[in-house]
Amino acid sequence: MRSLILFLQQVNVEQKLKDAPDSQYQIGVLIGSFVPFIVLAVIAYTLYYRAKKKEQNLK
């Protein structure tokens, strides 16, 4: 099941940029491809910060 989801989520950004109708679409594709990584980084940092703060309160 997981491999099916990963297969469906694969996006060929280079192909989308090549077939883009204008530059605004290209910018949207690039931003859209970076958003998941930014969201994951924010979640990871938040979890790290909360764990570190909790550890300091226990001392």
Rank of each mutant, 00 (worst) to 15 (best):
E55P: 00
D22E: 05
D19Q: 15
Q15S: 12
F34S: 10
E14S: 09
P36E: 12
Q9T: 13
I5P: 00
I38V: 15
Q24D: 08
S3T: 11
V13D: 04
T46P: 00
Q10E: 13
D22C: 07
K16N: 04
V39M: 10
L47T: 08
K16W: 06
L8F: 11
V42I: 15
I43W: 07
G32Y: 03
K16G: 00
A20L: 04
V42C: 08
A51M: 10
Y25D: 03
K18N: 09
V13F: 06
A41D: 06
N57D: 13
F7I: 07
G32D: 10
P36G: 13
L17A: 05
Q56W: 01
I31H: 00
L6D: 15
L40M: 14
K18G: 02
P21N: 12
Q15C: 03
Y49H: 05
K52F: 07
F34W: 08
E14Q: 13
L40H: 08
A41Y: 04
E14H: 06
P21V: 05
Q56E: 14
V29G: 02
A44I: 09
T46I: 11
A20M: 04
L17I: 14
S3M: 11
L17P: 07
E55N: 10
Q56A: 14
F34D: 07
T46S: 13
S23E: 14
Q15V: 09
